[in-house]
Simulated scan of single mutants.
Amino acid sequence: MSFFEKTISKETIFNGKIIDLNVHTVELPNGKTSKREIINHAGGVAIIAYKDSETLFMVEQFRKPIEGVLLEIPAGKIEKNEDVLECAKRELEEEIGYRAKELKYLGRIVTSPGFCDEYIFIYKAEELYKGRDDLGDEDEFINVKEIKIDRVKEMIKEGKIIDAKTICALMMI
């Protein structure tokens, strides 16, 4: 049995700066129809940034959708027509103020495939050297933290780090 759902029609509900929202009418494998609300997102990158072999750079920032502060690996949105590797380089420097001599692609994840088409591409950054001093975008406020890898893993188990891309990325190393 095929699980594929054929799109019969698509209605655009919202076009925004970061996301678009569409409602798809789909034909189900059993021949019936249903609606799917789908968020389209350009995708993002996330970087496991090593200060040294035992320490990671992490970022702490307020996330409005959950009304709370999260501790995460550096990450950001892919701009329109931006190369994924170039995005990783840019976001690494914007978020923690460092560049990497070695930036290795580890894989990708889907964030919420039940309603969103976003992929996050995971990189590992090593041999870091100082870049810019002005962190974040004009509407982004970030605290950079240096945390031992073992402590990061403990914080995940303790529920102190709940960011999915961070947890997934650490499974890739």
Rank of each mutant, 00 (worst) to 15 (best):
G159V: 07
D133T: 15
D133L: 11
L170W: 05
A164P: 01
K153E: 14
I142M: 01
G136Q: 08
E158H: 00
I156M: 00
M155S: 12
L170Y: 12
E154Q: 12
D137S: 10
K145R: 15
T166V: 13
G136W: 03
K160M: 13
V144N: 05
L135D: 02
I167Q: 08
D139G: 14
K148F: 05
V152M: 08
K165R: 14
V152D: 05
V144R: 00
R132A: 02
T166Y: 07
D133Q: 06
I156H: 04
K157A: 15
A164Q: 14
I162C: 08
I147L: 06
E146F: 02
G136S: 07
K145D: 01
K145T: 02
D133R: 06
I142W: 00
K153V: 08
L170S: 05
I162E: 03
A164D: 11
I161C: 03
I156K: 09
K157M: 14
N143H: 09
D137W: 11
T166W: 06
E138Q: 03
L170F: 03
C168E: 14
R132W: 07
I149G: 12
D139W: 14
K153S: 02
E140S: 14
R132V: 01
D134I: 11
L135K: 05
E140L: 12
A164M: 10
D150R: 14
M155L: 15
F141E: 10
I149P: 09
D133S: 15
N143L: 11
I142E: 00
A169C: 09
A169Q: 10
K165W: 09
A169H: 09
I149A: 10
F141W: 10
K153T: 07
L135R: 05
N143M: 06
K148S: 04
D137I: 00
V144P: 01
L135A: 06
E146D: 05
C168K: 15
